[in-house]
Design a protein around this nucleic acid. Structure first.
Lengths: 243, 243
DNA sequence: TACAATTTGTGCGTATGTATA
DNA sequence: ATATACATACGCACAAATTGT
């Protein structure tokens, strides 16, 4: 076994391999969709055995960072529209069928970040954010209001794009701004509909809404998006599967 | 490679090993907490190499069915009170700290299963269920109402136990009835508090509540418990982490 | 305290099967 | 048909953790 002892923080070789590969992806050296070197090549480059590389890549598959196809190779995972939709979108109908809502953008503007936004996005004082409000519709009925908050620093110029943003944002973030969303945290609660939300959703003020407060994280657990969704449940549910 | 072709349904050796081990756990031959044979012994018993057994066991660790400790051995996973609490209990405070609520049982009775209950629990006509209602409290304030529905066939005699059931049920199910919960599905929505719930929770009727409708599954995806929780959010949130 | 036995964790190497271009 | 890539399966050696002597 090679000795790659690194001072106080010893790590197994396959962990070190994981970190090296993740770093090259995070730095943009291997962009989403890129074909990685084959197992023997990677092993040679890193000076470890093929088995060690295999173990590292298998872990990266579990983390969702790469995809492997037998006979083809290992690719950096991409946020396709399909996967972008269903990876983090957990709304289902009564029957259990996944909902695929339409989208209507009704506002987009830049402004100073609030204290709460600065804290949750890790922004410095006086940094600006872009706020986007969109209505999600099913059968031309509004079933959800989405409020997205983005740090302008990471999404430069997004506030002045002419066309409405596409329905699925994470593939758009990736292609347009090089921002990869790896993980989201959602806090769910119930709130009473306010005047505005009630009007948009077509419910009386005070009606019970499901609220999802999401923070999306990229590499190094950097928060890159805040999102608040308010949903008129009854026909739709948030499905959580735990094991 | 050994030929273990099984007619039309070929499976890799490590998959077959997984199935054999799972079966012995599901049948109760290896009960929770049991020390499994060592890797070499398992390999010998199943007639495969140690590496194949290792791959199988690693997958079972990911599935949460076994736990491995270096220098000691591999154990069938047990639903300890600790893990029973936090594995499927996703309520957190504003700060992100996990909530550890108290528990007060206020009703337990046997009755005929409704059509919906029969369907979701996979019961035959005229089968009976046991219904348990409990209040979950924080700082002597009721923050959640839990309604648990169990098939009497799997939990014989639970309706006539004298003492109130323990706060964490899944370890109790396991020790007392040999029922192992492997997975839960939860559907979350917002509802308006009714008269009864409002009184118990100390909120006005019509207030927004978070409702969690859970189905718990055991081996072979057999549903073994229904649970409906209604929560007064504001101070508490349901935390969902997706990656 | 020291030592030995046992068990899993890590790492290497090789051969063969299967899917893809 | 050939070459390439990942998937499966086998074997071995040593490290690290634990337990009992």
């Amino acid at each position: 076994m090679s000795d790659v002892e690194v001072g106080l923080s010893f790590q197994p070789l396959y962990r070190q391999a994981i970190e090296l590969i993740v770093r090259r992806i995070a730095l943009g050296e291997w962009r989403p969709g890129t074909l990685l070197p084959s197992e023997p090549r990677l092993a040679e480059q890193l000076g470890v055995s093929v088995g060690t590389i295999r173990k590292a890549l298998q872990q990266l598959v579990l983390d969702g960072l790469v995809e492997r196809r037998q006979g083809v190779g290992t690719f950096v995972a991409t946020a396709t529209r399909e996967r972008s939709l269903f990876r983090f979108f957990k709304l289902v109908e009564d029957s259990g069928k996944r909902v695929m809502p339409g989208c209507e953008e009704i506002a987009r503007e830049s402004g100073p970040a609030s204290a709460a936004e600065r804290e949750r996005l890790g922004l410095a004082a006086r940094e600006r954010v872009v706020r986007i409000r969109r209505l999600r519709t099913v059968d031309s009925q509004v079933m959800m209001i989405d409020d997205v908050v983005l740090p302008r620093s990471r999404f430069a110029g997004i506030e002045s794009l002419e066309e409405p943003l596409p329905p699925t944002l994470y593939d758009f973030y990736e292609q347009r701004f090089g921002v990869t969303v790896l993980r989201v945290e959602e806090r769910l609660g119930a709130i009473a509909a306010g005047e505005d939300d009630g009007k948009l959703l077509g419910v009386v003020p005070g009606a019970a809404l499901l609220e999802i407060a999401r923070v999306a994280f990229s590499f190094e657990d950097e928060p890159v998006e805040l999102r608040s969704s308010r949903i008129q449940t009854g026909r739709y549910f948030y499905l959580s599967e735990l094991s």
